[in-house]
Design a protein around this nucleic acid. Structure first.
Lengths: 343, 343
DNA sequence: TTGTAGGCGTTATCAG
DNA sequence: CTGATAACGCCTACAA
């Protein structure tokens, strides 16, 4: 059943011209007579000709395909980023191969290898939690493959990046709590390695400092998995160990929702007894009771910008012109909802 | 900065042998002396040789890449399916290009064209709401490109499919409401075209029938966008137009959560005044108050099975052996939570 | 055991 | 204006 695709050769034969001429006609070269040009174009349309992309790839050394590696697809933030990337890529004639690292460094290395072997024109990544300036990342850069990191980056890697100012955003979130009267503020932070968890933690600390609230390391809880369940777990610990806590800044909405779920169960009043602010503006946070205050992170835009940067770099790569990595900083904003309101 | 990739030619030159021999050595042909074989393998490793996939694609007429078109990436169900597909594909040495139709037939046609031109080895799709057995789908089949449809299929298309029994699942959901004592059951259904919306509606109707409850078309509300907002809107209409309704079956959890949000706002008691059951088992439905009863749909598994079917078909395609399309029916189950409990 | 030749389909160069 | 030729990198009959 294998269907023969029409090729230039076929068209050339049918019209009794050379393959070269056929090719030129279709590519709009000026040195083809109107007559043959039209004949070729007509026949090509009739036979439903499309250039064999395998051959084009081989000739041009381009696949018009990029690779995207993210920790997980099933995630409100990441799926929005994917959305932005696919969108922008398609606008520029690129397709996107998506792989997920499942937060495993081992897998991430394998994925990078797959993409390199596939000879994608560029790679966009958000690093797994365990990942840093490791051999696989070095490899991409040494090979000169255009690379853009977003969200979960490593400061050690010298490449283009699209990020938010996590430290500032966290600072603002905590000051928001303080402005609502919170005096004893706990923090559920992300794992130790990823830069954004570190930065959010630093922002938390700085906000306390600036407002003359003593920092207490006992009020900081560290996630390992960053899940709904961990939110519940830490909510329990916080209430049992530090019942006087009246404010809580949580690394991300998913975990914050876990906290809310636990507090709802135990009839602990939010925001009356304790105010909570999350991070990311997950769709769900405006749907849960009480509605969760959070930090809005422009995920779709982050995807778009990531591709744009990559595209720029790919152009330079193709033209063999030097390219200086850039970092784009996107704006965040506090979204006040019920969980931090004064009633 | 363009980095020269090592090629067979380079290896051959360095070892003063022919390209053929180098190729054979690496592919484990028996007719190469141990000595040269080892030398080639050593050098290949040293120079970090990997076959140029563009050339391999051209020769083998395979890209080891498949295309996936879904209505939207940012969706709990679909992102889980993506997850399953990527996973299974990777296990079998395939990469996945993802495109989204945004529920637009126009876009969907374009995406199909892109994938065909890219010469992917196979395509997996979930149709957009407006889509049916249209020219683009016919095109895929006529070209003999392996195709698998999942979830949102069209019965008119003769290809492999992975689905659930929507009618049966809906039937069970509505019977669940009835078993909880509901006498007047409304239904918020999906758009008119997609098969699964039709089937769920039919299941609803059948369950009423079997239980001697009169079907009333006024109690059926039809979504156009299937959003959270539509859930709120219809919740309002239901209460205002038919305050005696005591049960509600909703096409999907996202919409059901919108309903719950409206009822919570208006202090309408769920499940006391009205019981609600959704569809899909979205992560969020176990987090909202009250927790939403729903129909569990094995999304990850659906992804895995879709790729498996596609793979099977691709093998047949390659070997030019006939292939009879198959349909895999996956099991669903009712998940009872607070929104349908008798208190 | 090794190597030559040809082809996958397209494109670029250069000569007619 | 047209076309022959080579090359992209790999693979496989077939010869030597």
């Amino acid at each position: 059943m294998k269907n023969k695709q029409t090729t230039l050769k076929l068209i050339a034969e049918k019209l009794n011209i050379s393959i070269t001429t056929a090719s030129k006609a279709l590519k709009g070269y000026s040195d083809v007579s109107e007559k043959t040009k039209n004949a070729v174009i007509m026949l090509a349309k009739e036979l439903n000709y499309t250039p064999n992309s395998f051959a084009v790839n081989l000739r041009t050394r381009e696949s018009k395909t990029i690779g995207l590696i993210i920790p997980e697809v099933v995630h409100h933030f990441f799926s929005n980023v994917i959305n932005g990337i696919i969108d922008e890529a398609e606008n520029n004639g690129y397709l996107v191969i998506i792989l997920q690292s499942n937060e495993s460094l081992e897998l991430e290395k394998k994925q990078v290898e797959l993409l390199i072997n596939k000879r994608v024109d560029g790679i966009i990544m958000s690093l797994s939690n365990q990942s840093n300036f490791d051999s696989h990342i070095k490899n991409i850069i040494e090979k000169g493959i255009p690379l853009v990191l977003f969200d979960k980056i490593s400061k050690l890697v010298n490449c283009s990046k699209v990020i938010i100012d996590d430290q500032k955003a966290a600072f603002e979130a905590v000051e928001h709590l303080i402005s609502k009267g919170c005096k004893k503020i706990a923090h559920i932070r992300g794992p130790n390695n990823p830069q954004n968890a570190i930065d959010r933690f630093l922002g938390y600390k700085k906000a306390l400092e600036k407002n003359n609230i003593a920092y207490d390391s006992k009020l900081v809880y560290t996630c390992t998995d960053v899940t709904f369940e961990e939110g519940k777990k830490f909510a329990k610990e916080i209430i049992e160990e530090h019942s006087e806590v009246d404010g809580l800044f949580v690394i991300t909405d998913l975990v914050a929702v876990g906290v809310l779920a636990y507090f709802n169960e135990k009839q602990i009043k939010v925001p009356q007894q304790i105010k909570i602010i999350g991070f990311s503006n997950w769709f769900m946070s405006q749907v849960i009771t009480p509605k969760l205050s959070t930090v809005d992170q422009p995920s779709f835009e982050m995807g778009k910008q990531s591709f744009k940067l990559l595209f720029e770099e790919m152009v330079h790569f193709k033209n063999n012109t030097p390219f200086e990595p850039k970092t784009i900083l996107l704006k965040t904003s506090i979204i006040e909802r019920e969980s931090t309101q004064n009633k």
